[in-house]
Simulated scan of single mutants.
Amino acid sequence: MRRNETDFATPATSKAAGHLGGLVRQARLARSWTQQGLAERARISLATLKRMEGGAVEVSLGGWLAVFESLGLLPLFSALRDPASAAL
């Protein structure tokens, strides 16, 4: 049986997923794309995109990355840095 990721999400994780979902929605609307259009571009189902925009934590990382790539936002992830790793 699959585990329900929502049951294991911390409040911080849920908040981050909600924030990312909002960013996806804003970016989609800024491009005047429909949910169906973005889902097709990202090669995911419409239901998955709707869950993402709603801040669902159970959507796969691959799905999130495909959407960010379709929106042209994937390069933003390369700017992420971990100060602890940099100290090594």
Rank of each mutant, 00 (worst) to 15 (best):
R3A: 09
R3H: 10
T6Q: 08
T6G: 14
D7W: 03
F8W: 10
A9F: 02
A9I: 06
A9L: 05
T10C: 08
T10N: 11
P11R: 11
S14D: 04
A16W: 00
A17S: 11
A17M: 01
G18W: 00
H19V: 13
L20G: 05
L23W: 02
L23T: 07
V24G: 03
R25T: 07
R28Y: 00
L29W: 00
A30Y: 00
A30K: 07
A30C: 02
R31K: 13
R31Y: 02
T34F: 01
Q35R: 11
G37A: 07
L38F: 00
L38E: 00
L38H: 00
R41S: 13
R41C: 12
I44K: 02
I44P: 02
L46N: 12
A47G: 10
A47F: 00
T48H: 01
T48Q: 05
L49H: 03
K50N: 12
R51I: 06
R51L: 01
M52K: 03
G54S: 06
A56E: 02
A56Y: 01
A56N: 04
V57H: 02
E58I: 04
S60F: 03
S60D: 09
G62A: 04
G62P: 01
G63A: 04
W64F: 07
W64N: 06
A66V: 05
V67C: 07
S70Q: 05
G72K: 11
G72V: 12
G72A: 10
L73V: 11
L74W: 02
P75R: 01
P75C: 01
F77W: 07
F77D: 02
L80E: 09
L80R: 14
R81T: 12
R81C: 05
R81G: 10
D82S: 14
D82A: 10
A84K: 15
A84P: 13
A86C: 13
A87H: 07
A87C: 10
